[in-house]
Design a protein around this nucleic acid. Structure first.
Lengths: 232, 232
DNA sequence: CCGGGTTGACCGACCGTTCGGTAGAGTGTA
DNA sequence: TACACTCTACCGAACGGTCGGTCAACCCGG
């Protein structure tokens, strides 16, 4: 994404409308910065790295951003925006707890697998934020956490939850989900569709009872044999 | 752990056997460095941070260590040693796949919960290692991964695995386990025993079939009510 | 010729690391 | 006992380098 290795520092084309509208350029900087920070880590990424990748000098990008920490905060906020939009809000409108849970799992995993959901990794670099920014992000993460936890509590009341503390269940779910962006490779052998299907099965049945998979229990031997080909 | 705030830079006592044997002091440095790096991250931790915490000058600690990267590698190797000793080796001697899986989950989680298993977090900072060191650590992690994956494959052959790709199952398990050290607080409300019990239930039934919890299905309403007190 | 966009030069702070030096305990010798 | 020497443990200072960030000047389309 956004590969621009042998590109001159500045596009010298005469152009009535400049190639970059200001806000587009800012967006571009955020996007490139996110990409680099995701793979190298926040601390290990220098402003020069970002400037080079974006085709400006370090001084140049300060025309668009306030500073490095602000960059991180903005990216984190954007990541949370996406989660809000794609996962939390749709889920909040679902009344049935079980359906809400599966939606959360499915939508969040889908985001990571299909969109550039690697941004989620940066959500772990909380220590690098100023206290104020850290509070903001923490509150948003907390809201998400509470949504899942309350969903598990509802499921417990319905007798659908396993004999587990909802908090432990919630953390376990978040662990599985967050981990995806660490191991999923777009060029790997497993297709997003297959991963998504299997992952939903794993995540949901981790916390819910009676998910023996009655519907799919047919032909287990055949499917197991098929699967052995892939592995090893 | 190892709190020594108001301790003078150097213990000036006359003592036939010095307070610190050299290897002890080195160990102490590794331990303190691990602690700080765990909570701040590798890059964000300066040698001065470590020196201050250990009660020496920055120059002084170079008497005991080779460098910062070496410090990280040594800590990672130690973490893997512990996993080898406490989890992998005991598990390798178990012939029954299901028992092996539960043992792995239980022992690894127990390590993180009871010993200072937060070191596991540092195992994610692979990019900071030299290529040679990175290869070493990666190989050890890979061996662990393969152990779990092969166990899941055995379980698939036995018809005990859910209808999932073993690789996805393995990653999900590692996600849940690794995540524990990010959220578990020793001074939190949940006891290690309770977490361990619930976590095993979650992790094992994430990948295994027919774990409806028949044995503990009694009194679900009462237990659910009890649990609601804790949360919120 | 005005002004937004961009630059190269540069700043102070801090990084990991090294080096010369030293306090003090141990050891050998007389 | 006294002195000379060695060795370990450690420190102060400084190294070369990079960091995030700033600024006066310039370019160029309007």
């Amino acid at each position: 994404m956004i590969a621009r290795s042998p590109l001159p520092k500045q596009a010298k084309l005469k152009n009535a409308t400049p190639i970059w509208r200001k806000e587009d350029r800012a967006d571009h900087i955020y996007r490139v910065a996110a990409e680099i920070m995701c793979e190298k880590g926040y601390e290990a990424t220098s402003m020069n790295d970002i400037a080079d990748a974006v085709g400006l000098t370090k001084a140049g990008i300060y025309h668009y951003i306030r500073g490095k920490e602000d960059l991180l905060f903005e990216i984190m906020s954007y990541a949370m925006d996406m989660v809000d939009q794609d996962v939390i809000h749709p889920a909040q409108e679902i009344v049935d707890a079980e359906e809400r849970l599966t939606t959360i799992v499915e939508r969040h995993a889908k985001r990571i697998l299909e969109v550039g959901g690697a941004v989620t990794i940066l959500l772990e670099e909380m220590y690098a934020l100023t206290p104020a920014h850290r509070r903001t992000i923490r509150a948003r993460k907390r809201a998400y956490f509470d949504l899942v936890r309350q969903t598990l509590e509802e499921l417990a009341a319905e007798g659908k939850l396993r004999e587990i503390n909802p908090v432990v269940g919630t953390f376990s779910l978040f662990g599985m989900i967050s981990w995806i962006s660490r191991w999923y490779r777009r060029d790997g052998e497993l297709s997003p569709q297959q991963i998504l299907h299997d992952f939903r099965e794993v995540a949901v049945s981790a916390v819910l009872r009676t998910r023996g998979g009655a519907a799919t229990r047919a032909l287990p031997a055949a499917r197991a044999a098929l699967r052995k080909k892939v592995a090893r």
